[in-house]
Each structure stands twice: as C-alpha cells, then as structure tokens.
Design a protein around this nucleic acid. Structure first.
Lengths: 231, 231
DNA sequence: CGCCGACCTATACATAGGTGTGATCCCGTG
DNA sequence: CACGGGATCACACCTATGTATAGGTCGGCG
C-alpha cells in the first residue's frame, strides 16, 4: 500500500518533468471502408509490416464497437454508406475520441482535403495511392497517437490525484500555487493561516509533490483540464 | 529608472499569467503572385475590408524586402516564376519567418494541398475562389499571426531579462526553480547557502518575479528557448 | 448513539527564505 | 593605478514554511 503510493509518486514526478514512458504496446489500425477488397488489401499491407488491423464497413460499425485501449489510428474512406468522412471526423472529436485519422478517397477535391487537414487529419490520400504513402501516413499517425496517449495519461493521473483532495485542499492548492503566501490565502478564504498550512501539506502529500515547485507545475498542468470540465 | 522597472515587471507578469496585450496594429497582407491582375483584384478585395496590402511578383522580391514589424499574413500563389510555393514555405521556416501563409493555385492537386497544410499553411484555395473564402482565410491567418506575435514577444522579453542575469545568477535560478532548496543548490555549485540567497534574490529582481511561483513559471517558459540556442 | 472524516483553531518549535551591512578577491576598463 | 562589477562569504534579524501535539465543531453512517 505504502509502496504503491511511492511508486506512483515517482511516476508522476517523471511525468511533470516531461519524461516519456516507453509505451511499446502493439498498435492497431482501424480501417473503415465499405469496399471489402480495399479493406482486405490494406489489411495485407499493414500485416506485412507487423501492424494488426480491424475493419469496419460503416461509420456506425466503428462507432458502436468498443475501442480497445491501445495506440493506433483510423484509416477512413471519405465516402461511407452512412456518413461523410468529414462528419465522421467531427463526431469523433465530439465524443472525445482523439485517435488520429488518415483519410483516403477516390473522388475528393482540394477543399475537402484542406477541411480534413484543418480538422486534424494526419494525411489525406487520393486513391489510388502507393502502398508506401499509406504506410508512411499510418506510421506517422500511430506515432502521433503514442504521444497523445502519454500526454493524456499524465493528465488523467494528475486529475485523479487532484480529485482525492478535499474541496478545501483543492482551493488551497490552487491559491498557493499562484504564489500567494499562506496568510494571504487564509485571508482570501476567511480562515486562519495555520489551517492553510494543514491543507497545503495535505495537498502536497496527496498530489505526491516533493517540493513546492512541483506543486506549481502540477497546478499548471491541471488548469487546462479544469477549464474543460465546468468553469 | 525605478519606475521603468516596475512597469516592465507588470508587463511580464501579465505575460506569464497568459494575458494578451491588445495588439491592435493594423494588419498587412503580403500578396505574392506574378499575375498582376490577380494582385490588383486581391488588393481591391482586402482594401474593401480595411486591410492594407503589399504585392510582390516573385518569391525573391518578397524575401529581399524588409518586413515591417506588423501582424499580417502571406497570400501566395503556388506557381511562382522563381520558386515553388511549397519551397517558399520551407524557406520561410528556415529563415525563421513565422508569418502564416494562405496558399492559392490554379493547377494544384490534393497531395500538394496536403503538403502545404502539413507544413503549416492556414488554408489552400483553388482558383477560382470566392472572395469570401479568401477573406475568411486571410482573417484567420492574421488572427493566428496576432497570437503568434504575442507568444513570441513574451518569450523574447523573458529571454532578454534572463540574459541580464550574471552567469551565476542564471545557474542559481535554473537550479532553485527545479525545487531544490538553497542549501542543495549551494552544495551542487560548491558555494555557501548565503551566496545562493544573494543570487536568487538578484534573479527574482532582474526577472521581475514577485513570487517564487512566478519564477518557476518563467523558468518553464524559458526552457524551450534555452534548448534552441546551445544545449 | 458512537465513530469517522472534513474542517477549523491554537501553541510551539525547527527549518527555510529574504535582506541589510560589511567585507574580500578577481578582473577588465578607463 | 583606481574604479566598478561579479562573485564570494559572515553575522544578524525578521518573516515564512512545515510539522507535531492537542483540541474543537459538524454531518453522515452503522
């Protein structure tokens, strides 16, 4: 129990300092295309470089499937039976799925490709494409996903810790990390300085911050997430 | 003298906390196209919404011109007499010009547009385009430039201040902002704790940090810049 | 009801941070 | 050579922080 806490503390401090954990899980490529022969061809291509593939005939198939928690990317035909590829991209963003998308199309034009790229697509390949181009795109997308997953997991771990703080401890942490002195925080909250010290100490412990500087960095890393959820 | 210091201090702390200075300078659109009639048409279009325009017939013309220090963007034909628009984009990055680019073309294809977008273009418009689309792109590019300029000016101000610190003060600042205690820093540098306090205090003053938390944030904002120049 | 956890407060002591005064040493510049 | 700035250190003093001990209220839960 105590050991576990120490281990997680080490992990999170590494995170705050920007270390990358070696996430060497095998990647999974999601292919969404109603053309079965294309799905098969891509599966073969990806298999040849050791990438696992999962195919879906429609956008709905993909959206209703449960996503395994692995690094990966989505290879998407712009033209799907049930949905435009661009809409699909928007939907993914709405439901908070950040898996990078590689778009492909047989009939697209420039504005379509620009739109997709503006909305975060990793690449946009007109059909027919060269195998190598697709592979390059997919590998780049997977790399981007690995980065994203590291950042997201760091953020969520930080957020988890923060939520173990009592409301008062959270308030105190946010105020002291702005640089306010304990007595100023006490004034702001209408409580005594000694109480602030208690909450502050508790926050340090629960967050796993060994120094005040670490607490400041954690608070900074936390703030973007706090804005997303609520105020 | 003393007053000046106080003023700049206010400015930089605002910066660190993410305030945007109201950069309401008038924007300038650089149009690079060898087609004089296109240049004229664009100039008219931009003028109609109060944007100033400067035109260049070739990439070289632009690159040899002196850039005024104003927010703006570049509207660029992919096909230029002396250079490909994509190469031009690369050149801009190489020489450290971060002005956003809006690309336009009469003969482009999807891979070209994707390449441009991957390399940071704000938009890529096939000719003929609707005036409104061009205006939207240019206004978005200018807004992006304003943001970029705020960030860049903050960074450079921080860096300027940092360079007014003596070498020892810089070392001490970087060490204390990792969370090390004064005595630990003293041990690392082989000097006494009291000397560390002196340097630390000088660093706080010269950087304009009112609190230790601000100094930590400044150090964090500074580190990406320090890696660029040297180690 | 009794226990527990969150929250609040106080006293007291130890450690850390910040500043002023005064001083030494080295180095480069006028 | 004299001056000034950078770097170093010491003593003194005050403030801020961290923690332990001890005790209080309040609300929920078995």
């Amino acid at each position: 129990m105590s050991l576990h806490v120490v281990l997680t503390v080490r992990k999170i401090t590494g995170i705050v300092n920007g270390m990358q954990s070696a996430t060497n899980e095998k990647a999974l490529v999601h292919v969404v295309d109603d053309d079965a022969s294309m799905c098969g061809a891509l599966e073969g291509l990806f298999d040849s470089v050791g990438l696992q593939t999962k195919t879906y005939a429609t956008a709905k198939d993909f959206l209703s499937a449960s996503l395994s928690d692995r690094p990966g990317c989505i290879v998407l035909d712009v033209r799907l039976p049930d949905m435009n590829g661009l809409e699909f991209q928007t939907r993914l963003a709405q439901i908070g799925v950040g898996i990078p998308v590689v778009m492909m199309t047989g009939y697209g034009d420039i504005p379509m490709s620009v739109h997709a790229m503006k909305h975060g697509a990793v690449d946009f390949l007109p059909k027919p494409f060269r195998d190598q181009d697709m592979l390059d795109a997919v590998l780049a997308a997977i790399e981007r996903d690995r980065q994203r997953r590291v950042v997201e997991s760091d953020d969520s771990q930080l957020k988890e810790r923060f939520e173990t703080l009592s409301p008062r401890e959270q308030e105190v942490m946010l105020l002291v990390t702005t640089g306010k002195m304990n007595k100023q925080v006490a004034g702001d909250l209408g409580i005594s300085e000694i109480t602030v010290k208690i909450h502050r100490g508790a926050a340090m412990h629960k967050m796993g911050a060994r120094t005040y500087a670490e607490l400041v960095r954690m608070a900074d890393a936390l703030k973007p997430n706090l804005r997303k959820l609520g105020r």
